[in-house]
Design a protein around this nucleic acid. Structure first.
Length: 258
DNA sequence: ATGACGTGCTGGGCACGA
């Protein structure tokens, strides 16, 4: 079973790249972020042609998350995180697929810091941590995955000293990430590659991909009931080199049968 | 310190991203 997460940065502008990658990588389940499209503009038919069912929570212009499956039915369990009724951003969608509970998320960027956007990021993180505690306590096999907009450690940033004051590498954001991990989640990519420099995002500016000036901000976290099934994890970094590509690359895990 | 690039919305420049 192969499960992936991919921030597409506009699902319609990115559709040829997304379909090409799906055809090549053949993931069973995919979490998508940054659809940047309202619900009615989700390319359901094009994905169905490749054998993928989908659920999505779109939003005009910004945000938007989806879960794709070619491993059977998608049983939606939640959209949106609890705890802030006035939060209108489409950033969380959750479903049971093939015996695994999947939470797909797009955590707020939080820049500029300090400011209201950074405050929103930390509040959203707290709400995720509260919700994730319940997921762990359920004892179910759970994965939460997506664009966390946090580089957990210095190893995850091409030039850490330049990012210290940025919302993506700020002490408060990194501390929140580790509070989440401390509930018992396994960071699949870091666990399978403990000492490697691995990036999942490269800026469009300044030839960042060619210089490998990247960030590791897309994560797949596994609950204790799922982590012993982890076989491999990786980044399809070559996709970042394609024409009209996202600034993120797809990240995937391989699980043995449960 | 800023902007480089890219997307969406909309028909020109702005909001936003990381």
């Amino acid at each position: 079973m192969k499960i992936a997460t991919y921030n597409v940065n506009g699902i319609n502008g990115r559709l040829p790249v997304l379909l090409r990658w799906l055809s090549e990588a053949l993931p069973d389940i995919v979490c998508l972020q940054e659809l940047k499209a309202p619900d009615e503009k989700f390319p359901e038919a094009a994905l169905a042609e490749l054998g993928y069912r989908a659920i999505w929570q779109g939003q005009k212009s910004w945000n938007g998350v989806a879960i794709l499956s070619r491993a059977g039915e998608i049983h939606e369990t939640r959209r949106g995180l609890p705890g802030e009724a006035e939060d209108t951003h489409s950033r969380y969608i959750e479903a049971a697929v093939a015996g695994i509970l999947i939470g797909g998320l797009y955590l707020p960027n939080g820049n500029p810091r300090p400011g209201p956007k950074f405050d929103y990021k930390l509040r959203w993180f707290d709400r995720l941590i509260d919700h994730a505690a319940g997921l762990i306590e359920s004892g179910l096999p759970v994965m939460i995955a997506g664009d966390f907009n946090v580089m957990p450690t210095e190893r995850d940033v091409y030039k850490p000293e330049r990012w210290l004051d940025d919302a993506l590498f700020a002490p408060e954001a990194r501390a929140a990430y580790f509070r989440l991990l401390d509930q018992g989640w396994t960071d699949a990519l870091r666990t399978t590659h403990p000492d490697e420099t691995i990036y999942t995002f490269w800026d469009y500016f300044r030839n960042a991909y060619a210089r490998n000036a990247g960030l590791r901000i897309d994560h797949l976290l596994l609950s204790p009931a799922l982590s012993d099934r982890l076989v491999a994890a990786g980044v399809d970094a070559h996709v970042r080199g394609w024409e009209k590509t996202s600034d993120h690359a797809p990240v995937w895990i391989e699980l043995r049968d449960g």
